[in-house]
Nucleic acid binder design. Sequence first.
DNA 1: TATATTTATTAGGCAAGACTAATTTTTCAC
DNA 2: GTGAAAAATTAGTCTTGCCTAATAAATATA
Lengths: 218, 218
Amino acid sequence: MQTLSEENYLKAIYNLDKQGLKKITPTAISEALNNNPASVVDMLRKLVEKKLLQYEKSKGVKLTEKGRNIAILIVRKHRLWEVFLLEKLGYGWEEVHEMAEQLEHVQHAELADRLDKFLGFPEYDPHGDPIPKANGETAVTYKTVLAEIPEGGSCRVVAVKDTSPAFLQYLKKLDIGIGTKITMIEKIPFDSSVIIKLGKSNTTTVSRVFAENLVVHE
Amino acid sequence: MQTLSEENYLKAIYNLDKQGLKKITPTAISEALNNNPASVVDMLRKLVEKKLLQYEKSKGVKLTEKGRNIAILIVRKHRLWEVFLLEKLGYGWEEVHEMAEQLEHVQHAELADRLDKFLGFPEYDPHGDPIPKANGETAVTYKTVLAEIPEGGSCRVVAVKDTSPAFLQYLKKLDIGIGTKITMIEKIPFDSSVIIKLGKSNTTTVSRVFAENLVVHE
DNA sequence: TATATTTATTAGGCAAGACTAATTTTTCAC
DNA sequence: GTGAAAAATTAGTCTTGCCTAATAAATATA
């Protein structure tokens, strides 16, 4: 069992690793957690003792199998709760993150799996980040944006980049939500506007700015 | 804002008060929280400073308006989360409590109200305890048991007392769940068995033990 | 290579929240 | 009303997780 603080360290280290940082240093961790490097050194010692990570000054920090599994579970819970808050409780994109930071620490053996099932096994969270599966596998991060879909290609909305009310309202008006299928009909060279088809309904034209703020997949 | 520990004290004090304890003492609180009276005295000092409660040795502990509101919100969240875990995630009666102990501390202004709405404004939690409303009103605790319903009377299942798999399985077999309407047809004097009607379907006979373990309302 | 700068680590402290071991107050029984 | 028991309080510690300041080590730069 880990404390809340330990869990936050493991998650931060996991995320730094996922971000492709080749060497994870105390300073990098302290920046991620917004605390003091001296505190990080303390905690690293503790986590090494608990066999949740390894630390060599030359190689930086590496999570052990055990440490990584815990981190993955936290990330899994975080993203599942985000989906829950957005889809079931109707929260907005920006509000879900801080609540998920709290919910991710709720402990119970089956919690993640039951939540996953209840939500219909979603693949991405509302920010377009992939939700790790029960076995720990994490899908490739698709951060493809509508603007990148070739003419004739189709995709599904997985998230938005811009979360301003203006954009979200516009999406609502166009009846675009998470999961909406979009087919790229034509790209206008002049201003990079794109003509798209939503599901089986009519085609619409949206601007380049719009097309770059819609995260899609497939 | 309160710490997790402060919230647990407020909740414990609120519950002791609801249980009808006329004078709430440090010892009573320490028993409820399973900790040391000395720790309680420390914390009471802190909570008095924060104006969340008053403490006079002669009168015991009293929550202030502010303290009570916080306590009620925690209880509200606790019971709503219990309903969520049971109804949406399919957890069993006994499993939900400890998870709700964690979930009740998740903070966000609208959380309780959104959850309440999502769950359809339930009145009772799976243990038959009333869920405080958004305005802080708490329904009367109905702990009426099926056996107490007079002949001809009808009621709805709000909870079970016995949570053994055997009982729960039997309930399933009879197709009785939370919300099931039951009409009392007849009480057999010989062994206190009761003949009941479930919704609009046939009548069934259940034992006295059964009838004393089903918490109902109305 | 020697120096300057950045990074890591150690040492010493602090606040929260708990504990144990006195000590003081209250309460109860006689 | 007095002594015994129970309850409340105080004093002093401990652990966790953080902090600052000082020192040591590594890296970068002239």
